[in-house]
């Protein structure tokens, strides 16, 4: 050891440099990808023989919030379910095309859809905490049931995720109580915390406030503002004011097609397509 001391130090320094170079190149890569966290290419989706999505192309930037709007049945839910390969779990449903997340096509043949879902969080229209579990266990359900046992780690993640979901202060003294004992809005934030606990990069939300009262809704909206600092958020909404308030970009869909995709401000002030204009001004929908 003593004789090799100098040498090994040199090696260390060299290794450090290597690491530096690596991180540099990673950063470069990241910068390139920062532009498009999620890229959707020629995405089509079917329920049996019924086509629900037609040739969708869409790029979502990192750490932004994107809303998806459009009349009922236009394919909003189907679209975001295609982004974590949830769509194909419906019997008879299939999807075709590419969804590239962080440079990786999640529909590539060698990809395990279960792993994809761990990296992409999803929040559903109706709050759906696990009824048999406590608040604590709800938050760590995804970790525990994927084999994580480290109690200290989980304690930290629970606190972090609940804080991230703006629920910590309300429940910190009753983490052992059943998750179903919370109010609807709290349950929805619990579900957000549950998704955050998986440390996702992208967070998909399907009308997360449609089952909530205005106060609870505005809490979730504030939350989305915070979340987009750390995550890439894609949020389906029926509420155009909500889309205008929370999102940087907005996608308008109609009958399974992406009609327009622009910065939210532009979309609401000066839409390109007439159809968009008519929908936004409430002429149909």
């Amino acid at each position: 050891m003593t004789t090799n001391g100098e040498n090994s130090r040199e090696d260390e320094i060299k290794a450090d440099k290597d690491i530096d170079r690596q991180t540099e190149s990673e950063q470069v890569q990241e910068k390139q990808q920062q532009v498009h966290k999620v890229s959707i290419r020629n995405l089509e989706a079917w329920f049996g023989s019924k086509q629900a999505l037609k040739n969708i192309n869409l790029d979502v930037e990192q750490k932004t919030a994107t809303s998806v709007i459009g009349p009922s049945g236009c394919g909003k839910t189907t679209l975001i379910k295609c982004l974590n390969r949830m769509h194909e779990m419906t019997p008879g449903a299939k999807a075709k095309g590419q969804v590239i997340i962080d440079g990786m096509d999640i529909y590539a043949r060698n990809i395990d859809p279960v792993i994809i879902k761990r990296r992409i969080g999803m929040v559903f229209q109706k709050p759906n905490p696990f009824p048999t579990m406590s608040i604590y266990d709800n938050v760590v359900a995804g970790l525990k049931l994927n084999g994580i046992r480290d109690k200290r780690l989980m304690d930290e993640i629970v606190k972090d995720s609940l804080e991230g979901a703006a629920l910590w202060d309300e429940v910190k003294n009753e983490l052992g109580k059943p998750g179903m004992g919370l109010s609807g809005g709290q349950q929805q934030r619990l579900c957000i915390a549950r998704a955050l606990a998986m440390q996702p990069e992208v967070l998909l939300m399907d009308e997360p406030t449609s089952a909530l009262d205005p106060v609870a809704s505005s809490k979730i909206e504030d939350l989305v503002h915070d979340l987009k600092k750390r995550y890439t958020v894609i949020i389906v909404t029926h509420n155009m004011q909500q889309a205008a308030r929370v999102s940087d970009h907005t996608a308008f869909m109609y009958l399974g097609e992406l009609i327009e995709y622009s910065p939210t401000k532009k979309m609401f002030e000066n839409p390109e397509k007439e159809l968009t204009e008519r929908y936004i001004s409430g002429k149909f929908g």
């Binding site: 949830m86 779990m89 279960v114 009824p131 995804g142 049931l145």
Partner: peptide
């Protein structure tokens, strides 16, 4: 409820 299973799938649980 199916929503339980859906929630489980969305967390990447086998």
């Amino acid at each position: 409820p199916n929503s339980m299973k859906e929630a489980g799938h969305s967390l990447g649980i086998p």
